[in-house]
């Protein structure tokens, strides 16, 4: 049975980490969660990033957040990746499977998966 005691344990474990977290966010993963995104399947994509980033040990470096409509509803689910000093990368028609690949190759490996980007779709 899940108990509040477990949350207290998480708090204890996080004591040192919270400080780290505030200085983090080198990379920001933003998932479009407006009506268009949600209808197209953004919820499982968001979950895949939240889980995947943590499982890949990237939680201190990568922040996963949500936003409203990005403006390209026909390409939803849309995910934008912001990294200081680099151009924004916009991934389109995302799925949990593609998310796993982006975590591995882009967030971990540093190389955007160009075939899933908007640049690839419109050029």
């Amino acid at each position: 049975m899940k108990s509040l005691a477990e949350l207290a344990a998480i708090r204890e474990k996080m004591k040192d980490k919270v400080v780290l977290r505030e200085g983090s966010g080198e990379i920001r993963v933003v998932v479009g969660m407006a009506t268009c995104g949600i209808a197209a399947g953004a919820r499982p994509v968001l979950n895949a990033f939240v889980e995947g980033v943590s499982n890949a040990g990237l939680a201190d470096k990568v922040m996963v957040s949500q936003t409203g409509c990005i403006g390209v509803c026909q390409f939803e689910p849309v995910v934008e990746i912001f990294e200081a000093g680099k151009d924004k990368v916009t991934y389109i028609k995302m799925t949990p499977e593609k998310a796993a690949e982006v975590i591995e190759k882009h967030l971990k490996g540093g190389a955007p998966v160009s075939e899933y980007t908007i640049t690839n779709a419109i050029s």
Binding site: L7, R11, V18, V53, A59
Partner: peptide, 14 residues
């Protein structure tokens, strides 16, 4: 109340 400063969006909390 239990978590104190630990944000709710911490992976373990979610």
């Amino acid at each position: 109340e239990v978590l104190g400063d630990v944000p709710l969006d911490t992976y373990e909390v979610i």
